[in-house]
Amino acid sequence: MRQQVLVTGGAGYIGTHTCIELLANDYDIVVVDNFSNSKPAALSRVQKIAGRDFVWYEADLRDRIAIERIFAKHKFCGVLHCAGLKSIDRAERDPLRCYENNLEASISLIETMQRHDVKRMVFSSSATVYGESARVPYREESPLAPNTVYGRSKMMVETLLHDLVHADESWNIAILRYFNPVGAHSSGLIGEDPDGVPGNLMPYICQVAVGKLNHLSIFGHDYPTPDGTGVRDYVHVMDLAQGHFKALRQLSESPGLLTVNLGAGRGYSVLEVVRAFEAASGRKVPYRFAPRRPGDIGSYYADVTRATEVLNWRAQRGLLEMCVDSWRWQSQNPDGYV
């Protein structure tokens, strides 16, 4: 009999790709999403790729009655908690909404899990918890000093999870600190579909290449990096999805609390990504330099030693493949899931 996993935010960018990985590894899944920054059509495409149906609910994690009813209907072996607001810019403009969606929703979910004795969770965190004080490459032991509202919201949930395990050792939790997810499923059926002007580099480039935006704005060109533009650790979303599956499996084999970086373990500058995308797509990407954004850091990338040693995980796809898959998704779906 297959084990059943709840995936919160399962219609989102990370969630959809993770659902495919779980289905491919013979799990049953149940998806909960409020579709505030995702679309139901994404789940239909996941079913098409996987060749399997699954149950999904439109519900908000802060709606305790709705979430209670879902848990009463199913017997979950664990939860992949991918739900939450991810826009750094929007979080700065509306911090209350960010904390409400990322912190309050997590508390509501955890309390429901506790009532139903479901104590295995994989939590989607972020490299933004490190901030500027950590030395590159970022290690899981590096000091946490996030300089954005979004990063602080993730750190607060991490702190909650640490305290939870300390108080009750029957909880088994993996905290996955993402670096910069990019790319799309190789089918071109699912990918990143942001609302409005993208806040992340790759969908911004894609929308310029497909003609939806006139040019790419590169924020900052005077960083202490080889070409002056910011350097980031980009990791293919399907590699990231595999990291979720391996973390879930690890919790069943070695219970406890695990914190792991998921990144490629090296950095690429903005201009390097632009050139790689132009090579992958055959399209020119016009760009203009703009002032640095508050909270942006010149360079960061992951130390992935722990992921390799504990999860037997390492990113397999390089920058060119990330660009090829991103362009396939965008060129086949110029308006996203509409």
Rank of each mutant, 00 (worst) to 15 (best):
R2H: 09
V5Y: 02
V7R: 03
T8E: 11
A11P: 11
Y13L: 04
D28C: 09
V31F: 02
V32F: 07
D33K: 00
L43H: 09
V46R: 04
R52P: 03
A59M: 13
R62Q: 13
I65Y: 12
E68V: 07
H74N: 14
G78V: 02
A83I: 05
I88A: 15
A91S: 15
R93M: 10
D94V: 12
L96Q: 13
M121F: 08
F123V: 11
S125W: 10
A127Q: 00
A127T: 01
Y130L: 01
Y130T: 02
A134H: 13
R139W: 00
S142F: 00
P143N: 02
P146I: 01
T148Q: 06
Y150S: 11
G151W: 03
K154D: 10
T159D: 15
H162S: 07
D163A: 15
V165F: 03
E169S: 14
I173E: 02
R177V: 08
F179P: 09
F179M: 06
V182W: 12
H185Y: 05
H185V: 05
G188E: 06
G196C: 11
G211S: 05
L213D: 14
T229P: 08
R232H: 14
D239H: 04
Q250E: 06
V260P: 05
A264W: 04
R266A: 03
R275M: 04
A276W: 02
G282F: 07
R288H: 00
P291I: 00
Y300N: 10
T308F: 01
L311D: 01
R317I: 01
L319S: 06
L319N: 01
V324Y: 04
W329Y: 15
N333I: 00
